[in-house]
């Protein structure tokens, strides 16, 4: 069971403004792997994750998927605010053919939201949704859980528990995080790729990848002195502190 990218290319844009976002991407995610993908902002990490889970299609090359892959967490816009938490969980269970009430209980236990199960999502405190999405991604039993930007995008109080959940995930499950801010990554992930100029460079050691990525970001910054200073939406504050730009 794995997900394998073979010479994958993806074009973005239309007409004269179209360009290759990825060219000749090669990657393999095996069961039990903890893969970190470091990618500068706007380099296409969300597109890469969509290709990984099968909600987008390559324009060149093949993606062979013999594992079940989650949607990019923490996306949860498909949840119905006016339906109860339990109804939302049951929808995803039905969608993915999981017919077991234990799973519902497990998801509510994972997210520590048992008391909110019969409440409409719209009436629950805001942190319930982020906890629920994380618990759904992990609790539904996907072979590969993928995360966009942050692995534990939950409230402060729940964050240690979320990281503990991810660390304790079975060795038959893989985790993939694509991020531009590698702060929380080092102690969860074991292998890494850096996405630069539409290609993935593999690194067996996560710290080497982070060093390479930081150097790349500094180089990019030096190479583009005329570009106006990035606002907070482009460069994450945590990353600025860590890289020391």
């Amino acid at each position: 069971m794995s997900v394998e990218f073979c010479n994958v290319g993806k074009r973005v844009g239309r007409g004269n403004s179209s360009r290759w976002l990825f060219d000749d991407l090669n990657m393999r995610v095996e069961p039990g792997e903890r893969v970190l993908i470091l990618a500068p902002p706007k380099s296409g990490k969300s597109t890469l994750l969509r290709l990984l889970c099968g909600t987008d299609y390559p324009d060149r090359g093949t993606i062979e998927r013999t594992s079940s892959v989650s949607w990019p967490l923490p996306q949860g816009d498909f949840l119905v605010a006016f339906s109860s938490v339990a109804t939302n969980i049951r929808f995803l269970m039905r969608l993915y053919g999981v017919d077991d009430d234990d799973v519902l209980r497990r998801i509510s236990d994972l997210a520590e939201i048992s008391e909110f199960l019969n409440k409409r999502l719209a009436d629950c405190p805001r942190f319930i949704k982020s906890r629920l999405v994380l618990a759904l991604g992990v609790g539904l039993g996907f072979d590969v859980c993928i995360f966009d930007e942050r692995a534990a995008a939950v409230d402060k109080e729940f964050k240690p528990r979320a990281i503990e959940i991810l660390k304790s995930l079975g060795r038959d499950k893989a985790l993939v995080l694509a991020t531009s801010t590698p702060k929380e990554a080092a102690d969860i992930f074991e292998t890494a790729f850096v996405l630069e100029e539409g290609r993935l460079t593999p690194f067996p050691d996560v710290n080497d990848a982070i060093k390479h990525y930081k150097a790349l970001m500094v180089k990019n910054d030096d190479a583009e002195p005329d570009v106006p200073e990035a606002g907070p939406e482009l460069v994450d504050e945590e990353f600025v502190l860590e890289v020391g730009i």
């Binding site: 892959v69 993915y96 053919g97 234990d102």
Partner: peptide, 26 residues
């Protein structure tokens, strides 16, 4: 624990998966 299955070995499995998705969405 029961887990998600996404590998469809044939046309009928794929059709069954589509039916399941349509039912859940409906």
């Amino acid at each position: 624990m029961e887990s998600v299955s996404t590998t469809n070995s044939g046309v009928f499995d794929s059709f069954a998966a589509h039916l399941r998705v349509v039912k859940a969405l409906a």
